[in-house]
């Protein structure tokens, strides 16, 4: 993320504008999280509860309904597919972003072209990508499925993100580390595994987080490319039109919990690594006599 700006040196009285802006910020956060928390609460509706407040009791009824497959479609299957697909996208994105990021440190033939290709595919409306891949598969008479065409469709979205993050990470990576590795007799392979990857690990975890969550929640690109078997967001999409019970909210709560687990794991491990590496230096002890 951004290089944090240094804290202001003076700690005087805060200007009036601070309180105004802080209020604005609080409102924005409420706007961001308020409605979301409403559905999380509503997903615990009692069995007779409806789509809005008031709560009629508190229960896990709708979560049970979700897994019971009564009228909610193939929830468990979609859930499993989404997780597996997200794991696939994560692995491919991480590997390719690292390799591409390393390659981009030198200008190579076509590097500008690849760069613009990545940017274009990042801002391309998702449904166009989905349509294009769907039509391509139709043209070549290949069955679309979640682990081929949908995987590809999602990669057009996660790879550019991964690449941009690697740019940011590598721009702060000191090449002297690699040279030191070479100087100490490491082979290229050893330099990569023992030096580059561990040092870049926080950034790589960031790429993984993007790869996982962007894939797990991806909808417009996947819609036309997933083939016969749905992924979770498509299941939710289907439910918005035909399910009118809090089961929908329960599903929302479950997917969000998964997302939050991913976020917590990723950010937590990044924070852990950063803290481990940035512990405050010990006070200067005069080890060894002044010569």
């Amino acid at each position: 993320m951004a290089g944090p700006a240094p804290a202001q040196p003076q700690f005087g009285k805060r200007p009036k504008s601070f309180y105004f802006l802080a209020g604005f910020f609080a409102l924005f956060v409420a706007f961001l999280y308020g409605p979301m928390s409403a559905i999380y609460i509503l997903s615990f509706q009692g069995p007779t509860g409806g789509l809005t407040f008031p709560m009629r009791g508190v229960s896990l009824h709708w979560f049970h309904a979700l897994f019971a497959q009564e009228r909610t479609g193939d929830f468990a299957g979609a859930f499993a597919r989404s997780l597996l697909l997200a794991a696939l996208v994560l692995s491919v994105t991480v590997v390719m972003s690292i390799l591409a990021g390393m390659a981009f440190r030198r200008r190579f033939f076509g590097s500008t072209f690849v760069f613009y290709l990545a940017i274009a595919s990042l801002i391309m409306p998702g449904i166009l990508v989905g349509l294009g891949i769907g039509l391509t598969f139709q043209l070549f008479e290949i069955q679309t499925s979640w682990f081929t065409s949908a995987l590809g469709a999602q990669l057009t979205w996660t790879l550019p993100f991964g690449l941009l993050i690697m740019f940011a990470v590598l721009s702060r990576f000191n090449r002297a580390f690699e040279e030191a590795g070479r100087d100490l007799g490491a082979s290229n392979w050893q330099i990569f595994w023992l030096v580059v990857v561990p040092i870049l690990l926080p950034g790589i975890i960031g790429v993984a987080l993007f790869g996982f969550t962007l894939s797990y929640d991806e909808f417009p690109r996947t819609l036309l490319t997933a083939g016969a078997q749905n992924t979770l967001p498509m299941e939710i999409w289907g439910m918005t039109t035909n399910v009118t019970s809090p089961a929908l909210y329960a599903l929302g709560t479950v997917t969000t919990v998964v997302s939050f687990i991913a976020i917590t794991l990723a950010l937590g491990s990044i924070a852990l690594i950063q803290r481990r590496r940035a512990r405050r230096p010990a006070p200067e002890t005069q080890s060894g006599p002044a010569a």
Partner: peptide, 16 residues
């Protein structure tokens, strides 16, 4: 919220 589902976030406005 960027890392959570867009559809869910959108739906959450309905009860609201």
């Amino acid at each position: 919220p960027f890392w959570t589902s867009n559809i869910i976030r959108m739906i959450s406005w309905i009860p609201f």
